[in-house]
Amino acid sequence: MKKIIELNVNGEKHEVAVAPNQTLLEVLREDLHLTGTKESCDLGSCGSCTVLMDGNAVLACMILAVDVKGKEILTIEGLAQNNELHPLQKSFHEKGAVQCGYCTSGMIMTAKAFLDKQPNPTKNEVKEAISGNLCRCTGYAKIVEAILSVKQA
């Protein structure tokens, strides 16, 4: 049985009919057509589906959509404000931190939640912060660099 719930995503309220067995990831991608959040392992081990829930980085594949009502969700699509790239988006692009891009959304969302809490991290802290986001292309080097450069900015 589907149930109508109100989802607050990227500052916008949506009424969505969701079945209990739908994850937040499915609803974001399939019902709200926010396909920037990616599904890679779907079992909580890779970080590709990271979104922010009330400011905390969480995995959309591990959360039931029905369980999200009343919470604020921020996805990669909601990061840029007034067409202005978020500093992380800018630095990921400029520093070459993007290759295939499949992990990028999750990586940036994780980094955003982290920098919000810890605006001046060390390199090791950055490495630890993104260690729940797997990337097979970059060897993480440029990702770490991109996040560090935002801190300095």
Partner: peptide
């Protein structure tokens, strides 16, 4: 435990 994202839930 696990990763930051998992620990948050």
């Amino acid at each position: 435990v696990a990763t930051q994202q998992l620990r948050n839930t």
